[in-house]
């Protein structure tokens, strides 16, 4: 047996058992480790009681159902996406601004055409040249809101983080300006008809 194995502390080596030079002390399990075990066992009893003792096994599901209901019945709080602080008549002036429209058209071709078609006739996304709107009433500000906050559930991301607000307004004006044009392969209308 190797020399430097003189027990430190008052550990006692278990005599008669040696495996390839390895011996073992006869120490007890550390007390604090046992306390951890008792603690987790208590926790376990608590979890079990919570689960089986409660009068409903679906406590979690019910809790969230209640929460959901509460949230829905509350009066809507002002949403985080605000409508641009500009009035519609100011925006309509953009329709007379060829630079703004050109810029809007360019971005539309780059970013939007793949889903809405080059002429706004609709593909993945809805037709933007008819007078039917899913979101809002087809005013420039409505269109701008759809663009900024997106319709993530339906596959259009929010653009507010990626396109500056000014340019979003220009795109919206561009869409408004092509509204009413006619192309052959236009997609069926979606949403509600808005009478001008």
């Amino acid at each position: 047996m190797s020399e430097d194995k003189t027990p430190l502390y008052d550990d006692k080596i278990l005599e008669g058992y040696e495996y390839d030079g390895i011996t073992e002390y006869d120490n007890p399990c550390p007390v604090w480790l046992l306390y951890i075990f008792y603690f987790t066992a208590l926790l376990a009893v608590f979890f079990l009681g919570y689960h089986f003792g409660g009068n409903s096994k679906n406590a979690t599901i019910e809790a969230y159902a209640i929460k959901l209901k509460e949230a829905q019945t509350q009066t809507p709080v002002e949403t985080s996406v605000q409508k641009p602080e500009v009035n519609e008549s100011e925006l309509l002036a953009l329709l007379q601004d060829p630079d703004a429209l050109a810029e809007g058209g360019e971005i539309f071709g780059d970013q939007c055409a793949l889903c809405h078609g080059y002429s706004g006739e609709g593909m993945i996304g809805p037709n933007l040249i008819d007078n039917y709107w899913l979101h809002g009433k087809g005013k420039i500000s409505d269109i701008a809101v759809s663009i900024s906050s997106g319709i993530p559930d339906k596959g259009m991301a929010a653009w507010a983080d990626r396109i500056p607000e000014q340019q979003i307004l220009h795109i919206a004006a561009y869409i408004k300006s092509i509204n009413g044009t006619v192309t052959e392969n236009a997609k069926e209308p979606d949403g509600e008809l808005v009478e001008e």
Partner: peptide, 21 residues
């Protein structure tokens, strides 16, 4: 349990703990 006592040349701390855990 093999390499640590071998490399450090120390006895295993507690046989009883080995059994229990």
């Amino acid at each position: 349990y093999y390499y640590l006592p071998k490399a450090s040349n120390r006895p295993v701390y507690s046989y009883r703990l080995s059994v229990v855990h």
